[in-house]
Design a protein around this nucleic acid. Structure first.
Lengths: 235, 235
DNA sequence: CGAATAATTTGCGCTGGCGCAAACTTCTCC
DNA sequence: GGAGAAGTTTGCGCCAGCGCAAATTATTCG
């Protein structure tokens, strides 16, 4: 299952974690990394499990979910190509805080926690980049928190789609397509509502020609209309 | 308003940011730091403002709030002694993501962003400590997110009090006292509900002798009872 | 291509908790 | 100590959106 080294150092340089660093560092990281091809639907790690590896995604996409003791879950975030995941516990309590599952066939790199830590110690810029990455996610989480606590379900669903558009939107001749396979349940879990409520809004917007769904992919035809729904109180 | 240097290096060593570091580094940070005494109710920085300083709290307490374009706000977190705040934007977009206000007379340290950045570059452990701090907060934010999205208001209010108890609880002969001055509105803003709803629950628990409020301080008489409410579906 | 399966849509009733408003209590400051 | 301000409690009505359940449609696979 594990591909042997050498891992391509150029692929590493594309990670935000290694931005603004000399190529030598990326090569150093490459020698310590392990590459793996992961089939669709594969569980990469489980919430609460000992963090045995720190991960980065080269291609594909990974769903990070967190579930409580009562079984209720939320979708914490989607990981796209070039993003890291499961790296924070290396520096905290050593336990993965969430589940990670591939949504399509994917290619990941991973490191032994001790190796990554050593790399960060040798090259402070790597650690600094990581603060920036984690800090950005913290800001996003706090913004979502405010939205879930104060805004209507409709606005939240609209904002969810807009955010995904930003993260993984690609122009097609039909509109902007979100490059993650999205079920209604996924949208609901990000927006913090139920499958049924999310479906009602998305179906309504589909009827208005604002967006369309094909093969579990959402295509936004008029982002501006959606933006209005996301900003404005219901009208 | 600004006290002149020297800043006490021993005070710095108490910050989580400088944990596991030789005293020399704390002294280096001390020479760059500026100390200020802040009166109660003072706005330290505003959301969206250019991040002119990175902050740490020596004593007192600071409330971090985030508000949206519509004026709705949430209480992101309380900062207690030894915690840093307003440090992440140093490494990201350079804009404070929230408001910070003192809740009591407080003492803060602050650095020029460039100085803190240079310090992190020279001493990777400082940057690594910061990843740990920010990562821990990210985990907490995601947990709150799940709670707001899936649990009843009652459970969330109960959990809010328990979390504050953890962060700033001190045993007294009357029960465990939360060392932050807390209005009902604060509790509501953390729990993600309204003043009225939060008040109903807290008042009810007060009537049952589970807790008491005096001088804007909450005293929990039986944390265990509260814990049951936080865990169990309403019954 | 068609059957089996999975996902989505939609109707309907119900309720948690929000919003408003008013009474009451507690702090603050002169 | 008393007037005023600030914070809290509580009653009441209402509705967004959850939960259940069933029909419909899309997707997968033999």
């Amino acid at each position: 299952m594990a591909a042997p080294n050498p891992v391509d150092a150029k692929a590493l340089a594309a990670l935000a974690l290694f931005a603004a660093l000399p190529p030598a560092v990326a090569e150093e990281a490459a020698t310590m990394a392990r590459a793996r091809a992961l089939p669709r639907g594969m569980r990469i790690f489980d919430q609460g499990e000992r963090a045995g590896r720190a991960h980065a995604l080269l291609s594909g996409c990974v769903r990070i979910t967190q579930s409580g003791s009562d079984g209720e879950e939320i979708l914490v975030r989607f990981i796209g190509p070039g993003e890291i995941f499961g790296c924070v516990p290396v520096l905290t309590d050593g336990l993965y805080p969430a589940d990670a599952t591939t949504m399509v066939d994917s290619l990941e790199l991973s490191w032994d926690p001790a190796d990554l830590l050593a790399l960060m110690q040798r090259h402070s810029q790597v650690a600094i980049n990581m603060v920036a990455i984690v800090g950005k996610r913290l800001g996003e989480a706090q913004e979502r928190l405010r939205e879930v606590a104060t805004q209507s379900a409709e606005r939240r669903v609209a904002r969810t789609l807009l955010r995904l558009l930003d993260q993984a939107g690609r122009q097609t001749d039909d509109g902007v397509r979100i490059e993650f396979p999205l079920r209604r349940k996924d949208i609901a879990d990000i927006a913090g509502t139920t499958l049924h409520t999310a479906s009602r809004f998305v179906a309504g917007w589909g009827r208005q020609g604002l967006l369309a769904t094909r093969h579990h992919h959402v295509i936004i035809r008029s982002p501006d209309q959606l933006r209005i729904l996301a900003e404005e109180p219901p009208g």
